[in-house]
């Protein structure tokens, strides 16, 4: 059953993140950076692809998945040429980035921060 692996792997990656934030003094932004770079490096070593095949969204939805998409794109581009190798990462992740920037901008222009929840 694929969903079991999705749940376990996805949950485990988040649990590692929680442990990092609680046990070390790493703040949330630093954890995000670490996870993206870790995903890219693991894919560079061709270790992340098997995880994606096993767990699907469990491996792609957490942030290492973003790093994985970037690295995978770069590795595919590398077969075509040097510039394609540099371009490949952004090209593969362009959809997510474009939506995150534009939709995020619209949302930010509409809403304002609230004080009440502390």
């Amino acid at each position: 059953m694929g969903y079991v692996y999705t749940f376990l792997i996805g949950g485990a990656i988040c649990a590692i993140g929680q442990l990092l934030m609680d046990a070390t003094k790493l703040t949330a932004p630093r954890v995000l950076v670490i996870f993206v770079v870790a995903g890219a490096v693991l894919q560079g070593l061709q270790l992340y692809e098997p995880l994606v095949e096993l767990a699907g969204s469990g491996a792609t939805v957490p942030l290492p998945g973003f790093g994985y998409v970037l690295a995978k794109g770069a590795m595919e581009g590398a077969r075509e040429g040097l510039l394609q190798a540099v371009m490949g990462g952004v090209k593969a992740a362009s959809g997510g980035i474009a939506v995150a920037v534009s939709w995020g901008y619209i949302v930010s222009l509409i809403f304002s921060p609230k004080s009440i929840v502390r």
Binding site: V33, V36, V37, G44, F66, A74
Partner: peptide, 15 residues
């Protein structure tokens, strides 16, 4: 910045 740079480095290494 870190993610894209990492991917570029990996791409160049593979190239």
């Amino acid at each position: 910045v870190c993610g894209i740079s990492a991917s570029a480095v990996i791409g160049i290494i593979y190239w």
